[in-house]
């Protein structure tokens, strides 16, 4: 029985072809150990807390709960892929930084990826919709109110930059 598989995918805008990975490896471990993308923080390993959220084909997905082989042919974005080429921050990152919508920071990359996916799908989310989306990730530090405000600010920033 072969216990590796060959995958092709796009990771943070870069195309990878015929990458051999063990079938038992999760996406979280693949990103952290093989690609050195340590911004994706692993916590519950049950797909519950959302610390390891990445964006796959536009949807927020828990990397701890996704097998690496599931990303074949897909487009993956991690926190490292959110910054612009010139090093400037994404409006969501900028908003979290500006409003201090984080404390220990362990959930932050996941929260930011979740928020980015929300704003990609719905550039004008209501407060209720933001709450609903944010409720898929745990933040043990902030009490969420400042995170919700940061997502609202990010929506405003994105709109302004597009206007």
């Amino acid at each position: 029985m072969k216990n590796t598989t060959t995958l092709s995918f796009i990771l943070n805008s870069k195309e990878y072809e015929s990458i051999e990975v063990p079938t038992c490896v999760t996406l979280g471990d693949l990103l952290r150990e093989e690609f050195g993308l340590r911004g994706t923080n692993l916590s519950c390993n049950q797909g519950v807390c959302g610390s390891c959220t990445v964006i796959i084909d536009g949807n927020p997905i828990a990397a701890c709960h996704t097998f690496a082989f599931e990303i074949d042919g897909k487009n993956i974005r991690t926190i490292e892929g959110l910054e612009c080429a010139d090093g400037s921050l994404d409006p969501v990152q900028e908003s979290f930084a500006e409003l201090s919508a984080f404390q220990c920071g362990y959930c932050t990359p996941g929260m930011i990826m979740l928020s980015r996916a929300l704003l990609d799908q719905n550039p004008n989310p209501s407060e209720e919709l933001i709450k609903e989306w944010i409720s898929s990730n745990i933040c043990r530090c902030t009490g969420y109110a400042m995170i919700i405000e940061a997502v609202q600010l990010a929506a405003k920033k994105i709109k302004e930059s597009e206007a």
Binding site: R38, G39, N41, I79, E83, L89, F102, G105, T108, P109
Partner: peptide, 11 residues
């Protein structure tokens, strides 16, 4: 601003 902002929002 918090001084750990850059580290934490960029991963």
């Amino acid at each position: 601003r918090r001084r750990d902002a850059y580290d934490k929002v960029t991963g």
